[in-house]
Structure formats: structure tokens, C-alpha cells
Simulated assay, not measured.
Amino acid sequence: MTLIQRYLFRQISLPVVAACAALAGIGILSQSLDQLEVIVERGQSVWVMVKLTLLALPQLLSVILPIGLFVGALIALTRLQREQEMTAAFAGGMTRWQVISPAARLAVLVALVTLFVNLFMLPWAQHEARRQAFAIRTDLAALLVEEGQFVQGPDGLTVYVQQIEQNGLLKNLFVYLDDGKKVTTWNASEARFGRAGGVPVLTLTDGSWQQYSSNGVLNYLSFDNYTLDLTPFAGTTEVIRYKPSDLYLRQLLNPSPKLLETAGSRGELLAEAHSRLSSPLYALVAMALALAAILGGAFSRTGYSLRIAKAAGLFLLVRVIGYGLVAASAWNAWMNILQYVVPILAIAVAMRVLFRALKPRRSRRRRAGALKARTA
């Protein structure tokens, strides 16, 4: 790139990065608010909430990168055109393609980043998020403990905790177990869930144990420390069920019979695969429409609000159509080709507007005078 092209690339890329960062920040904030349920209702730590929020970031990036590119490019190009820096570049002998090449390179770079996110970061993050959600859903500490409530577990188990501290320490615990033959209770001033030898246990401190058998015998024991084995209550028949968005590209294109049973039909997986490959094209659509809105018409000192509104509306329409095609392609495999055709067609239309010859408009009076001169 020449010196002027490097300058244009820098002037366009900075607002694009700022717009993407702002949209990502809003998305992360929204995700963190949704994940508060993990702490409030599931009793998990703040670190688990942060981890789930960050794991949702690749999915956010695949959506916000084209939008951030479009918004940032419009801001940068409007400023450059209003300050007549683009006009100075044209006056210096640069062709239209030489002027827009920095923006085109930035769009290609964003498209490559989006493709990398779709093919590698997104499935890895979705896999980890699904496993973490499964672990939370099957966590004994979350299933058996609720502050100030009697929680009924499996096989006649009932647990009550007066207070749960942030570090996971349980205060004033009561455990009741009725297996049909005998009734056993535990009381402890403090307790904590953990694992010993690979099995889940509940470690009780400063408490007592009572057992009342069916023959009327009562046994009593006080203890400083007691380890309650929770293995009989930890069994679960649930398995992790993945969605098409959780799978890698090779799994989408060549799914195993097990994935077809759990993740979705072959058509749904194939539609998701083509969506991963075609969605980076919308970064090129965003930049092409932004360039067409600012440079695709005559210079205006009053701004380009109408042209920007038309470009934004067209970009929104094309993106919505793209999402609709993903859903429709799950049941009609031939429509997968349209996932590529629609953005390519939008790019072609925008480039046609950008490179069209700008013909000066003549007033009606001048046209009428020219027509009269021809007939005279």
C-alpha cells in the first residue's frame, strides 16, 4: 500500500475496531446478566459465571463483526468525505479502486477473522459451555442445597441448610435419610461438598449422627468430623446433547449416526455448515454497502443521511434473508446455494452503484430548450 492508502486504512480501521468493541461490550454485559441465574439459583461461584459469559463471546463475534464493520466504516468514510480527504485523493490522481482498496482489505481481514471464529473458536466454546451447563445441572451441591429450604433428593434424602456462604461453606446443616428400613439423620454446624477418591462426599464438622431402626433401636453418635458418601445419590441417566452450533465443520459435513440421533437431522447439520462458510461474506457486504452509501453518489455538504438509511435498510434486509435461508435450507438442501448467492448478489449491486458513471442532472428548462433547438 502507498502512504495515502495506509493512512486511509488506519483512519477506517480505528472506528471499526471501536464499534466492534462497543458491540462486544454490550453483548458481554447482556450475557453476564443472563448468567446471574447460575449464582442466584444454582449456587455457583462468580468464576463460573465469568467463564460461561466468555464462552458465549465467539458466538457474539460471529454476529457483531459484520455489523461493527458496517457502523465503523460509515463513521470513518463520512468523516473522510466530509473533510474532502477522499476528494483530495482523487485529485491527486488515485483511481476509485485505489481509494477503496484499503477499505476492501479491511473487509477481507474481518471476513477471515469471522471465518476463523466460525470454524474453530465457536464450536470449541459451544462445546465447553454445553459441558459446563451439564455439570451445573447435575451438580449435587446445586441439586441438594437451597438456603433456608428443605430440599428433597433421590432415595428418601432430605437436606436443609440455614446459610450458604460465598466460598461454598454450609452453615447449620440437617440431613434426613429414610431408606424404608431405618431413618438416619445428621446435624452439623458446618459442612462442605467435595470429592474423595474420585467420589462425591459431604464433609460434616462438629455435629451428631442418629439412626432409628425398624426394631425400635436408637443409635447416637457425636463427631468432630464425618464424611458422608454421596455416591448412591449421584447417579444420573442424563447425557450431554449437542446442537448443530456446537459441532465442528467436519462433524457437520460427515456426522456419525450418534450425532444424527442427538444433534439433529442431516439437513440441519448441512445447513449449519454452509452458514459457517457463507456468513463471512456479510463482512464484504457491509463494507460494499458502506462504500456505496458514501462514495456512490455526488458529494454533499449536508450529509448522506438518506443514502446511509437506504444502505442500512438493505444490509438489514440481506442479513435477515440470510438467517431465513439457514432455517429453510435445513429442509430443502438445494437452498444451501442461496446462502452464498444472496450476499454475492448484494456485493455486486453495491459495487455497481459504487463504480457507476455519475452523470450530471440537467434541469427541466435546459432539457426543454435542447428539445426545442432540435425541432427548429
Rank of each mutant, 00 (worst) to 15 (best):
Q163V: 12
R364A: 15
S279K: 06
G68I: 07
I164Q: 14
A22T: 12
L177H: 15
V63D: 07
S222K: 15
S245T: 10
K372V: 07
G198Q: 01
R6Q: 14
V201P: 03
Y7V: 09
A129N: 11
A376V: 13
L173S: 05
E85V: 00
A91C: 10
L61M: 11
L157Q: 04
V48K: 04
V199G: 04
L106Y: 08
Q251T: 07
S305H: 09
S245F: 08
T262F: 11
L52P: 11
D155I: 08
L177G: 06
L259E: 10
R319V: 08
L269K: 02
G369M: 12
D179H: 06
L122S: 02
A89H: 04
Q132D: 13
A89L: 09
S279M: 14
A142H: 04
L259F: 04
E268M: 13
R79I: 02
D246T: 05
G324C: 12
A88K: 03
A142K: 05
L112V: 15
A76M: 01
P255I: 01
H274K: 01
V199Y: 08
T231C: 02
P255S: 03
L14Y: 08
I12G: 02
L61F: 04
A73F: 02
Q251C: 00
L112A: 15
V48L: 13
A311G: 06
Q149F: 08
V40M: 07
P58A: 07
G153E: 07
P280A: 03
L69T: 09
T227V: 15
L281H: 07
Y304V: 04
A125L: 04
E41K: 14
P360S: 09
A348S: 03
F355P: 05
L371T: 09
A103L: 07
L74F: 01
Q59F: 12
N332R: 11
L295R: 06
G324F: 10
L270C: 05
G72H: 10
G92F: 11
P154N: 13
F134N: 08
R361T: 12
H127C: 01
R319W: 15
G322F: 06
P232H: 07
P123K: 00
L371G: 12
R361N: 14
V113E: 01
G153P: 09
G313E: 07
T203I: 07
I308M: 03
L23T: 04
L295W: 10
L36T: 13
A292R: 04
L230V: 08
H274P: 00
L122G: 00
A129R: 15
